[in-house]
Structures are given as C-alpha cells and as structure tokens.
Amino acid sequence: MTASMSQSLAQMVQTDYEIGDYQSSIAPRWCTGCGDTAILTAMQRLCRDEQLPPEKTVCVSGIGCASRLPHYMNAYGFHGIHGRALPIAEGIKIRRPDMSVFVTTGDGDCCSIGAAHWLHAVRYNMNMTMLLHDNNVYGLTKKQASPTSPKGLSTNTTPTGASLNPLNPLTVTLGIANVSFVAQVVDWIPELLYEVLQKAYHHKGFSFIRILQRCPNFMDHHFDAWMQDPARTRILTHGDGLRLRPEMSRVYKNQETHDPRDMARALALAAMPDEVPVGILYSNPDVPCYDELRAGERPSTPALVETVLNEEFDKVGIWPAEEEA
C-alpha cells in the first residue's frame, strides 16, 4: 500500500487465519509416514504465522508426489506439467508481485526434466520460495532412479543398481550465477524445517530449500542412519541464520557457526560426504532480483498495451489514399 491512510483503514480489519484456513477440503493422499506431510504442515504453519491471506498465496508444482501439495493447501494452486513449475511461478510473480509464491517440486521434477528451469530460476533470482522434496527416488511412478538416487540403488529402471554418482542439488545451486539463498533441512526435524522455511520466506530473492524427505514405501529406512544418529547431522547456526533452542542443542551437538555469506565454506559443507548439513548454507539479499529489474516504469494496463502497440503499428502503417486528407 502506498498511503498510510489505507494502511490504517486496512488495520481496522483484523485477520485471524488459523491453520485450518490453509487446509483444503481434500485430505492429503500421501502414504502414511511420508515426509511430505511434515513439509505441508510447516507451510501451513508459516502461512498462519505470517497471516498470509489465502487469496494472496499461490503454490505451484510440477509432477510427482511432492507436486500434489497445492491440492492440500487452501490457497491458489497450479499443478503444472512435469518440470515446468518454475516458469509458471515466474509468470505469476512478475504479473502479480503482491502474491507470495511457493514452488514445490521433487528430485525428479526439478533435477531431471526441469533442470534447465531450475538453473535459470536461480539466476533470475525472483522473489519466491522453492522447496525441493528430495526423497532420492521417483515415488509416484513406483520407484525409478532419480538424479539424486544413490549409486547402486536398485530400482525399476536400474535393476542392477544405479550406475552413476548422484547429483548434489546443493553444490549445483550454489554454483549458479546470482544464487541468493540456499538451505538444507530434513523433514524429520520439524522445528528446523519450519524455521528454515520462515527464513526463506523472508529472504528477498529466490530461496532454494532442499528438504531430505523420507519415502516409507520405496526408500524405507533410507535416511535411518541420519535420523538415528544426531551426530551425523551438522546444524549450521549463525546470528543471521538458525539459532537452536537449548533443548535442541542437547540432542544435536554437532553444530557449526557458519556465516551465510561465506560461499567457500558453503560449498565445502554442501559437499560433505557423510554428514548432512542442516541450516542456511548461503544467503545474500543484495543479489538483484529479475522481477525488480524488469519492473516497468508503468504497469502494463490493457490501455497502455493498446497504446504502445498502436504507436508501433502507426510507424509502419500505410493509410488508404482517401484517408490521407
């Protein structure tokens, strides 16, 4: 809003959205024990705590288990086509900068068929939050190897075991020009999942969160080693990043104070082979945002579009002889 009077009058209308206001009439149809439910809950908590009007919130997804999320949010949603969530989200954001835009995608949707859009979305750095639900497998289609599947994983498409080393979404994202926010979290620590999501939401620019997510049906016990041994989870803390409660600190003793502006350390942390870094690896709010750079001097109202088009046509217009006079 531009005027303080409007703000004052708007404040007369108190909103009190509760978590139920963000739950759609469709009950989540994810498998019992699926990590996606924790992500959905974290998003709904964020919307409630930020009091985001449902009509000002939009979730965009591609195809996959993770991409079902917009159905379960009572907000605007766009269940797009495979790998193409980001271009749609960018279109929404540039036309409606007042909307809070969330993109939910999976490791197959993002890192395989949608990889090109992922790279350029990071480079465009438009103001939105992307959640990569990474369960290391194609779950919706009943277990095929995804780009992040560990080497040797036996799946329908790799019956003798995946032959390639997995792609690391963190190091890839950190290596893209204009990257401005990269975080990693795991679905089984809801408190940190929520806090990272909140930081990402408040970050100005494109916030990329990779969420290690359990798939109880096709990757059962895959993350057990990290779930059961807190020492293998390295919590990244900082004044500008996560701050652990004492109770959490007692459980997760493996902590490192990491400056989110330190790209070199972020890359080293992202590439750690055995430990899972949890927290904000990189955050730089000074990176220019494409949506702000491209914001025209005037909004493209239909009248303005028509005027400009007519001006352009007039430059090359050939008028009938009788109209010349």
Binding site: T32, G35, A38, L40, Q44, D187
Partner: peptide, 22 residues
C-alpha cells in the same frame, strides 16, 4: 519433533490428536 505423518491419529484419533501446529 512430530512430522504430521498421520500414523498415530489414524490408529485412534481420541487418544492421539494434533495441536494448533498440526
């Protein structure tokens, strides 16, 4: 630490329930 996986509330929703944070 609950991840809202629904397993317990599906067992018995009078015994187990979700709080305001689900």
């Amino acid at each position: 630490r609950c991840t809202t996986c629904n397993e317990c509330v599906q067992t018995n929703d009078a015994l187990f329930a979700y709080n305001d944070d689900m």
